[in-house]
Design a protein around this nucleic acid. Sequence first.
DNA 1: CCGCCATGATGAATCGTTTTAACCAGAGCG
DNA 2: CGCTCTGGTTAAAACGATTCATCATGGCGG
Lengths: 342, 342
Amino acid sequence: MRETASVVDVAARAGVSVGTVSNVLNRPERVAPSTRERVLQAIDELGFVRNEAARQLRAGRSRTIGLVVLDVRNPFFTDLAAGAEGVAASLGLSVVLCNSNDDTSREHHYLSSLREQRAFGILITPVGSRTSTIDEIRRRGIPVVLVDRAARGNECSVSVNDRVGSELAVSHLIDQGHRRIGFVGGPLSITQVSQRLAGARAAVEAAGLSSDALTMIETPRLDVEQGRATGEKLATIPARQRPTAVFCANDLLALGLLQDTVRRGLSVPGDLAIVGYDDIDFAAAATVPLTSVRQPRSQLGKAAMEMLIEEATDGKTHRHRQIVFEPELIVRESTVRQAGTG
Amino acid sequence: MRETASVVDVAARAGVSVGTVSNVLNRPERVAPSTRERVLQAIDELGFVRNEAARQLRAGRSRTIGLVVLDVRNPFFTDLAAGAEGVAASLGLSVVLCNSNDDTSREHHYLSSLREQRAFGILITPVGSRTSTIDEIRRRGIPVVLVDRAARGNECSVSVNDRVGSELAVSHLIDQGHRRIGFVGGPLSITQVSQRLAGARAAVEAAGLSSDALTMIETPRLDVEQGRATGEKLATIPARQRPTAVFCANDLLALGLLQDTVRRGLSVPGDLAIVGYDDIDFAAAATVPLTSVRQPRSQLGKAAMEMLIEEATDGKTHRHRQIVFEPELIVRESTVRQAGTG
DNA sequence: CCGCCATGATGAATCGTTTTAACCAGAGCG
DNA sequence: CGCTCTGGTTAAAACGATTCATCATGGCGG
């Protein structure tokens, strides 16, 4: 076996031209069965493997799609990725998962790399709202679809209505009789966080409560660690001012807070009711099953990928559009006292 | 601005040859400062972006490294990935994270794709032990380093001594007075699992206990869900035969089991002591902080990547070697009753 | 003043695939 | 018999960056 066989070698061995080999590879129906057979055999014997770089060079774009997420460690994003990947795989496209880690410079680095690779397209949850690099990439003809982020202007996006989701969550807490509610999340520069805060405020207002019924507890990140830290913070608040329920901007925060609260010997939801956001698998599996706002994560990824592919294939006729899914509140024990445990 | 500027456009604008442009890009010191300046300006004005596919075609290999893991949702692997990525990034190489999800066909699919891309190298935790595709890829000149898996024969690997890790864990449980110990994990086809089981058995034997002191509880997967299911299983065992301590093959299992146990109103470690493996961040943050076997995850990724790059750059002089890290037992409350809670 | 060397710059060849226009043989038809 | 049509096949021209052998220029020592 040669170091690496090319299409020329295959052609020589099968006694045909390179064009025919290429046809066998890409449009097998156009070549006569007997020749096709001969070529396939030559490919097999030589252990020929297509050179993707050469294909890409010729095609002008690659067959990889970048998926840039804020946090690979958050199951929300890996589930989303799984949904997106399923669609891509069925079309022979591959997805590379890029973790911006909520860091603008990392995001920029990945975007530059995808641009050099002439990516087929990009799905991204941008770190901030300023997206000059994204605009520049789009201008180069690489389609970009925003995921889990509603587009402002003339671009495609797939998102979930964060306002509605948090209204559901906070209204539920109010229905349960809570009058001092905490909102945990941050930084506010993350659009999802500010949207969810806005929804929470709207729910408080709609219930006719004063706006100070809602206490904002800002965190620097949206992870388990910060959730636990929030437990510390809450403990320092005098009991009569302390929220009796909190709404967390995502499940990682909620789980961290839940763990800390239980460890302090407090009861959930008795002493503190907790609602999360995303409904990751961990939520149902927590020590006290977590009430959470379910987002159609996998479907989100699927829809985004379908839109991206549509834009990438019929670029001319394509019209940008924004898909918005509706979230759903899943009520579990972290907000509603169970019959048996009363 | 043209659709997309190439190196010839840049050359024309700067009034030099394409060779010079290439030199500015790759060996700037070889070109006179004044020309260099002129070329850089042309690049800027035209918004020129290198075409990675063309580079790769010429170079014969790409600048991406595949990292194929068993489960992206397990923080162990994302931490490992972070370590590996750090090293790669400093050399201008990019890492694509591929999730085999413990499925042979997915693994094969990713490997084929990486082969077509003429990957710079591959880091992989293989699903099974049969690795014919890997051998084939290596024969093509793509270096492969096994991670978290000791190599059998003539190949590079970076792993952690699983036998020692589980001996530490089980000896610790025996030291705490436990005489009926459960081992939770599976499937046994995963090398890590069988190694950890072997270590557990060795520890039991070393302590002079009968081999039925160890109860095997096999699971189909290593996730939180299965950990909870294990709780169910344990509950069905008559109290006098039920293990008083369990050693789980990874932290996800341990956390699931912990959650289920606490929910049943049992005390940890009073009614059941639990040890996990990996010491993921979640372990310390659990309702009852989890005793776990710490693996140098990030370092593992770093070392593997360094080896891979070494093999990829001096292919001739390179000699395969196997690095084995030693694990460390981190004792927390899930096995040792705290003073206050007695 | 001549030849040599160093430094910079050049241009053509190359990587491996896809695509397109051209070509050919044979079938069908008037 | 000549014409068109068609299914198969071919040869050659891209795609865009890199590399290497070659060449120009000017300074310097002899």
